[in-house]
Design a protein around this nucleic acid. Sequence first.
DNA 1: TAGTGGTCTAGACCACCTG
DNA 2: AGGTGGTCTAGACCACTAG
Lengths: 242, 242
Amino acid sequence: MAARYIEIKNSIREDILSHRYQVGEKIPSERELAAQYGVTRVTLQKAMNVLEQEGLIERIHGKGMFVANVIEDNVFMLNNGTGDSILGFSREFGQQAKITSQLITHDLIKAPQKIAGQLEMQPTHRVHFIRRVRLIDDIPVLVEDSWINSDVIANIPAAVLEQGSLYQYIEEVTGKKIKFYNSVIEGDLFSEELAALLSISAGLPMLKVSGVTKLEDGKAFNFSCSYNRADMFKIKNSWVGK
Amino acid sequence: MAARYIEIKNSIREDILSHRYQVGEKIPSERELAAQYGVTRVTLQKAMNVLEQEGLIERIHGKGMFVANVIEDNVFMLNNGTGDSILGFSREFGQQAKITSQLITHDLIKAPQKIAGQLEMQPTHRVHFIRRVRLIDDIPVLVEDSWINSDVIANIPAAVLEQGSLYQYIEEVTGKKIKFYNSVIEGDLFSEELAALLSISAGLPMLKVSGVTKLEDGKAFNFSCSYNRADMFKIKNSWVGK
DNA sequence: TAGTGGTCTAGACCACCTG
DNA sequence: AGGTGGTCTAGACCACTAG
């Protein structure tokens, strides 16, 4: 049972995405919506805070709340900012396109120094090292390397890595939601090695996204680094001043 | 007079940045801090929500709140996520390095179709087109193009573009804070033209950040696009599942 | 002046974690 | 059992915008 304010947020979100409210249109006031949903203003405001952070609405003091210009484009947006938990690649794009994976590498290795630090574990412990090529509608678009603490997940079936969602599998096995994702975005050029995996030329631009993923109990279980074709991906950001 | 929860957020923020709390250390509970600051838990929680979004703390249900691993590095982080309003380049980095600008172009032009759409204005209206090279400690690190609605700011002194902070100037002239910044991050290669402005080679990787800036009354006044040397900048992101 | 979002109080109950 | 964060209520006052 999700929190009431999340339910309300998703309900209004649907109203916006289905164009029940038009872009730029004023949506009902906090007091009206609170009455409609049978909650207090504070609860409704929590819903609207999230919606604002997701970039779907703008709130203007004294005027009201308005449907924001949602950026639409012919490239994919990494982390639409949406969703109630971190989704991962498969679940994020699975709705809008056919997602597949090629498993390139899957080894149990001793954690490299840097990875052990990120995962807050002893370097003597073992981690899964996984390299996958991800395809959208059969076009290879990115290479993703993952290092996963084997204490959290002892075994990862190949089927999950090739067809399923790794994050979904981890949520199922651990019974915990994935909560934190601190990431860093960098620009770089594709090396020969990575370019070959994507059947493109070396020297083309990439967006590199790396970061640690944690469970809701704070346990860091995954460090991942993805190398994305810059001509296929953008990243959206929505900053709101306080 | 800033809101109480912003004051509290900044106070705790200082405690963390000055290492009064160590990384990974548990900070006092919500109830304790609320008592300390003489506010209710709801107010304190608003402060902590912002701090969490800024990536400075992690909150774990049933356990407590902990100082997060703050990424430190030898490159600059675009939008530290911090600050109570959108700062812009000068005010963001002015503290840690010597920031200067070279003014390349400043023209009053008819708004191009695409810009007019972004700024929600008629294409017949005029905009300032400004191209600047930004330098950190005398090293040119990015090119920034700005299109600014001349209805909002009729005149922009050259001194502001060459030495001052454009955003600060706009806040002073309009008497309004800058509130929204919806941006899109892309990867690309430097063209000959842009590379020449930075005295680097064409074909090197860049991080391109573009977006619309708005005043607190919702007025879109600026569309900007910056071309950042990928070897000098990273972008930090902190996503928290709901 | 009336309506709007923004902030804040003083409680309450729940879900989660640890000993 | 006791402490923690997460949610929610039913009010209140303020600051801003508009006609």
